[in-house]
């Protein structure tokens, strides 16, 4: 019972971190928000590892901490321009974003959840499918962050957030084999490295005449 409460608390904090990232104008705060989010997910993994006596979840938590938390944050921060705490994205209208976000999440998540995921029985926590709502929320929050912003960094953070949602889904529902999970982590890391090549060249994305239609 008390552990259930802690799991809910961690999940809710993850969700709050997702909204925190969505509401930021400054890139550095977003990257830090992503770091906090990854640490929270690792914490959820460690907690469930303790409850289930599962070595897989323990390794998974450590992987999240090292690859997501430390390496990706490091990669993103070192690619920032020199005065990195002043880099911000223009034209971010927070109330508008939040309202559209709410509509998007309500439509996407609650419909998907109530049709499909509420009938899933998580292996990690028997008989409690409502935690599965949080990974879905995080996932769609990531997609929304990508679609709603124009800056390269923000979109990378959105992608990492989307992946975080998947990891959280795997943690709550049933951890996929650790070999595959590890390759997924490495893939995401490689993708962030590749994308950071572009952040140096091109930091915002607008419509282009040649790429129309």
């Amino acid at each position: 019972m008390i552990y259930d409460g802690i799991v809910y608390l961690i999940s809710a904090s993850i969700l709050v971190s997702a909204f925190y990232i969505q509401g930021q104008r400054y890139i550095m705060s977003m990257i830090r928000g992503q770091l906090v989010q990854s640490i929270l997910i690792a914490a959820a993994s460690f907690l469930l590892a303790y409850l289930e006596n599962s070595l897989d979840l323990l390794i998974l938590g450590a992987l999240i901490l090292i690859l997501r938390g430390i390496l990706i944050t490091y990669m993103l921060e070192t690619r920032m321009p020199r005065r990195k705490s002043y880099v911000f994205e223009e034209g971010v209208n927070v109330p508008y974003l939040f309202l559209v976000d709410l509509v998007f999440i309500v439509i996407a998540v609650f419909i998907i959840y109530s049709i499909i995921f509420s009938t899933l029985v998580p292996i990690s926590q028997p008989g409690n499918s409502s935690t599965l709502l949080f990974p879905l929320l995080l996932f769609f929050q990531g997609i929304f962050l990508i679609t709603s912003r124009r800056s390269t960094y923000t979109q990378i953070v959105g992608y990492v957030e989307e992946e975080n949602g998947l990891v959280l889904l795997a943690i709550f529902l049933l951890p996929v084999p650790i070999i595959i999970e590890a390759s997924v982590f490495l893939d995401v890391l490689a993708l962030v490295v590749i994308s950071s090549v572009i952040t140096v060249e091109k930091s915002t994305h607008e419509r282009m005449e040649e790429l129309r239609g």
Binding site: G142, I143, I146, T152, Q155, I156, G158, Y159, E162, L191, I194, S195, I198, E201, K202, H205, M208, E210, L211
Partner: peptide, 15 residues
């Protein structure tokens, strides 16, 4: 244009 196309490819496809 090619930078923009690369970026769209990365972000849309990986998402």
């Amino acid at each position: 244009e090619s930078l923009e196309a690369t970026w769209r490819y990365i972000i849309i496809v990986s998402a």
